[in-house]
Nucleic acid binder design. Structure first.
Length: 269
DNA sequence: AACGAAACCTGCGCGC
DNA sequence: TGCGCGCAGGTTTCGT
C-alpha cells in the first residue's frame, strides 16, 4: 500500500498508538521479511523502546534505544494493532508490546523488508543511503541537471527513488497529468521550466494526498484499517475510458517501463 | 549505459 | 465450476 502519502499516514497513525511502548518479545513467523536471522533480530531489539517513528521516502524508521528498524512495505505491507486475537494467515511478524498489546506486520505478498541498523550511522547505510530528496526538498535546478543526463522516460525517472523519493505509480501518473507532460517523454528533452513544473506538481499532489490520508484503491485498506480519501481526487489513474477532467478526451491506459500508465492523450504532450 | 523480462509472492477478476 | 491468464500502490537482478 505504499507511496509517500500512504507511508506517512501509517507513520502518523502508528506513532500515536505505540510511541514510548517497549518491545517485550518478537515472533517471526515468516523469516524472509527480516534481513537477518531470527536470533539476531530478537536479541537486537528485545526490551527496547520505540521512541519515535520517522520516514525517509517510502521507508519507515522506528527509532529504538540503540538501533533503527527500517521497514519497507513494498506492495502490500501493513501494520495492525491487536490484543488477544487469533493470528491471521498473512501476519508474519508479531511485536509484543506492553499490556499484551501487539503490533503485527501483515503482508499478503511477502515483499516487505525489515533492516536493523545502528542508530548512529543508519542514514549512510543500505538501504537508505541512496534514497534521494523528496519533491518538496528538491532544488529545481539540481533536479533538471540530474535528469538531463539520463536516457530514460520521465515516468521511469520519477519512479526511480535515487533520483527523487516518494513517488510511485499512482502519484507519477497524477504528477505528469498536472504537468501536461507525456510519460514517454525522454528526460533529456525535458526543459528546465518543465522540470520545475513537474517538481511543483509532485509536491502539490503528495501534500494534498497526505492531507487526505493517502489513496485507497482495489479495496486494499491501509494499516489499522484506515481508508484514505485521495482516490476521489485522482484525475487519470484507474480512470481508463473516462473523460479527461480538463479537455474531455477519453483517458487511455498504456505500458511504460512495464507499469500500467494512465494518460490524457490530448493534454499530455 | 540502458532496456525489458524475470524474480520475489499471493489473490482477484476476467474470458472461455 | 474450473482453468489459465493478466494484473496489482515496489524494487532488485539478470540477460541482451
Amino acid at each position: 500500500m505504499p507511496e509517500l502519502p500512504e507511508v506517512e499516514t501509517v507513520r502518523r497513525t502508528l506513532l500515536n498508538v505505540i510511541k514510548d511502548q517497549q518491545i517485550m518479545d518478537i515472533d517471526v513467523l515468516y523469516p524472509n521479511i527480516i534481513q537477518t536471522d531470527r536470533a539476531t533480530f530478537k536479541k537486537t531489539i528485545q526490551y527496547q523502546t520505540i521512541h519515535d517513528i520517522k520516514r525517509k521516502g517510502k521507508f519507515l524508521l522506528f527509532i529504538l534505544d540503540t538501533h533503527v528498524m527500517v521497514i519497507h512495505l513494498r506492495m502490500e505491507g501493513k501494520f495492525y494493532i491487536k490484543k488477544h486475537e487469533p493470528i491471521l494467515k498473512h501476519e508474519h511478524i508479531i511485536f509484543k508490546l506492553t499490556d499484551d498489546m501487539e503490533l503485527r506486520y501483515h503482508d499478503v505478498r511477502k515483499f516487505g523488508t525489515i533492516h536493523l541498523l545502528p542508530k548512529n550511522s543508519y542514514d549512510n547505510m543500505e538501504p537508505l543511503k541512496r534514497v534521494a530528496l523528496e519533491p518538496k526538498d528538491m532544488d529545481p535546478l539540481t533536479f533538471y541537471q540530474t535528469i538531463k543526463h539520463r536516457r530514460t522516460t520521465i515516468k521511469q525517472a520519477l519512479l526511480n527513488q535515487e533520483i527523487i523519493a516518494g513517488l510511485g505509480n499512482i502519484y507519477v501518473d497524477e504528477t505528469l497529468f498536472l504537468s501536461h507532460i507525456h510519460p514517454l517523454r525522454k528526460t533529456h528533452d525535458i526543459h528546465e521550466v518543465e522540470a520545475k513544473k513537474i517538481l511543483d506538481a509532485a509536491t502539490n499532489v503528495l501534500d494534498k494526498a497526505v492531507k487526505l490520508g493517502g489513496t485507497t484503491i482495489r479495496s486494499y485498506t491501509s494499516s489499522l484499517g484506515i481508508h484514505g480519501r485521495f482516490q476521489n481526487e485522482l484525475n487519470v489513474h484507474m480512470r481508463k475510458g473516462e473523460p479527461c477532467p480538463i479537455c474531455g478526451e477519453l483517458i487511455i491506459k498504456m505500458k511504460v517501463g512495464g507499469r500500467g500508465t494512465y494518460v490524457c492523450p490530448r493534454c499530455q504532450t
